[in-house]
Amino acid sequence: MKTEEMKQVFARPQALNPVQTHFCPGCQHGVIHRLVAQAMDAFDIQGQTIGVASVGCSVFLYGYFGIDVIEAPHGRAPAVATGAKRVHPRRPVFTYQGDGDLAAIGTSEILHTANRGEPITVIFVNNTTYGMTGGQMAPTTLPSQKTSTSPYGRDESKDGYPIKMTEILAGLEGTAYAARVAVDTPQRVIQAGKAIKKAFQTQVEDNRFAFVEVLSTCPTNWGMNPLEANARVAEEMIPYFPLGVFKDVSA
């Protein structure tokens, strides 16, 4: 077959830099990064977008996306994004945060940013653990899940319950779009891509606050190989963290 006859069906998104990531094998940050980049490509906004990186494995956002980036203190990305958005109201602004960052130390910032209806997009990656610091118990760690700081398993009577941020944020007037997705199967990757695109659309076209929670893996800290980790998403996480669109005011 001649090469000029070949049809390109898959390519690196424009918004994603042609570099190798530092993520562990089987980690799904890479897939989620690609979906975010594809969403920026879809609206042709790479040249305007300001990303806000959080503290955790996703802190190196600026290395992977070809966009301007502010690195926020732990949990504060939505507040930093608020400041940026007020200065550049026509520029798309998004945060990319993990579960420790958004659902523990940063609960105040995310809640109030959503409640103000700040027109930003928030990508929330939930892998039920603190990845970068070595697998400690997260606010989303599942009941009985063993981590380096819950060596006997999460005990709800003492540690409380895995927090469902999408449901909480969907309950706020300021939130226009809230969805939970996963990237453990090709079909779900496509669904996740649509949700992330919708979350950017909500900001870019409707000037409203949008939130997407992406269930993700952490094979290294879960002590699993990539396949086992991927399987755990459907087996353990989705039953507790149901997928779906919890709020869409445009629907």
């Binding site: 504060r76 507040a79 994004a81 608020t82 200065v87 109030h112």
Partner: peptide, 23 residues
């Protein structure tokens, strides 16, 4: 823009964000 933030912590981080954008 005037924002009465939810906390002092949010305020200073909004300042960081606005400042990073040159304002």
């Amino acid at each position: 823009e005037f924002i009465q933030a939810e906390s002092e912590i949010a305020s200073i981080n909004m300042l960081l964000g606005a400042s990073a954008c040159g304002a």
